[in-house]
Simulated scan of single mutants.
Amino acid sequence: MDEFYSGFAQRARDLAEKADPFTRRRLLDLAQRYELKSRPGSSHRRPSPPPRVTPPAVLFSGSGEA
């Protein structure tokens, strides 16, 4: 997976060489983000979502009438 992101980073840099200034800046930012993802143990990876919590059964007890 690291080579995957590293390859995308290089492609973005290659495209940036031929782009206008606005697009060049965006492509270089994108390349930097891909480069960070390609590093093993990087702290910039997306965090895992928090575990789901089941609501207490008390909320569901009752006859079901409103």
Rank of each mutant, 00 (worst) to 15 (best):
V58K: 08
R46G: 01
D20C: 15
V53S: 05
R33N: 06
V58Q: 10
A66R: 11
P56Y: 01
D20V: 15
E17G: 12
H44P: 02
D2K: 06
L30S: 04
P50E: 06
E3W: 01
S38V: 03
R25M: 15
F22M: 09
R52P: 09
A12C: 14
R52C: 02
Q32Y: 04
S43Q: 09
R24C: 11
V53Y: 00
G64Q: 05
G62M: 05
F60E: 09
F22D: 10
A19R: 06
S48E: 11
Q32S: 14
L15F: 11
D14M: 11
T54H: 01
R25E: 14
R39K: 15
F22K: 12
G62K: 08
E3T: 06
P49W: 03
A57I: 15
Q32D: 15
G64P: 05
E65I: 15
G7W: 04
Q32L: 04
E3C: 02
P56N: 07
A12S: 11
R24H: 04
H44C: 07
L59W: 10
S61F: 01
S38A: 14
E17T: 12
P21D: 10
L59S: 02
T54C: 00
P21T: 04
L15R: 10
L59D: 08
E17D: 13
L15Y: 12
P51I: 01
A9G: 14
H44T: 13
S48Q: 14
D29K: 07
L28V: 03
Q10W: 05
E35M: 00
A66Q: 05
E35G: 05
R45Q: 09
F60Q: 07
E35C: 00
M1G: 10
R26D: 08
T23K: 11
L30Y: 07
E3D: 12
A66T: 06
L27V: 03
R25L: 12
G62T: 07
G41I: 03
S42A: 10
R11C: 08
L59N: 09
F60I: 00
P40R: 13
R11N: 09
E17Q: 15
P50Q: 05
V53H: 06
P21R: 05
S43Y: 06
R33E: 06
D20N: 15
E17N: 10
R45L: 14
A12R: 11
H44K: 11
Y34I: 00
R13W: 04
S61G: 00
R25D: 11
F60M: 04
A57F: 03
P49M: 08
G7E: 15
A66S: 15
S61T: 14
G64V: 01
A16S: 13
L27K: 03
